[in-house]
């Protein structure tokens, strides 16, 4: 029940974020959706993910507000054309109709996909402490059973930072000196 209330709030926040004209309101709605997602993780008994979600959400919100919002662009003008809107609605309806047989095959919400005992998740729960010695099962999976995946994630972060540095690096010393001179003249 409470979980459904959270879901409704998430949908409302996402709709506001998509439809509002003000960029600041959109950013704040996205932040609200993120916080409700972290609450949902807590309801589903995943405190690790909830902590990560809250922390990353706060930082993302700060970065979005501080670094992307400026006086330059705060409002988005113009409406989506009627032809485009009807086309996208038609595509959504078509895909929903085509995927309807598969929706019924999906497992119910909250039911573990891999049943315990026989499958790999039951193995992690049973053998995690004995094989790795870590009391936190999530960490034992992340850093022992699936450490190779974690190395891949760290590589992704490293590569994204390299890309950001390459695109947004500081201007060279010579250019900086020239600009300081310009500012002094002003």
């Amino acid at each position: 029940m409470e979980f459904n209330v959270l879901l409704v709030f998430m949908i409302i926040g996402a709709l506001i974020a998509a439809e509002t004209r003000d960029l600041l309101s959109a950013v704040i709605s996205v932040g609200a959706v993120g916080f409700i997602v972290s609450l949902a993780f807590l309801f589903l008994k995943a405190p690790d993910i909830a902590i990560t979600q809250v922390v990353v959400e706060v930082l993302t919100l700060v970065v979005l507000v501080r670094a992307t919002l400026r006086n330059d662009i705060t409002t988005v003008k113009g409406m989506r054309g009627k032809i485009g809107l009807s086309f996208s609605l038609a595509v959504i309806v078509l895909i929903t109709l085509a995927a309807y047989p598969f929706f019924r095959e999906l497992p119910h919400f909250g039911v573990p996909l891999l049943s315990q005992g026989k499958s790999i998740s039951g193995f992690f729960l049973k053998e995690g402490l004995r094989r790795t010695g870590a009391a936190n099962v999530t960490t034992s999976i992340l850093l022992d059973f699936r450490m190779y995946d974690t190395i891949g994630e760290a590589t992704i972060l490293f590569a994204s930072l390299l890309g950001a540095l390459a695109i947004l690096r500081r201007p060279s010393h010579k250019k900086r000196g020239a600009r300081d001179k310009e500012e002094r003249i002003k």
Partner: peptide, 12 residues
């Protein structure tokens, strides 16, 4: 490795 958390959220 004992309580919820880990390297990523702590680093953030």
């Amino acid at each position: 490795h004992l309580t919820p958390g880990g390297g990523f959220p702590g680093g953030v």
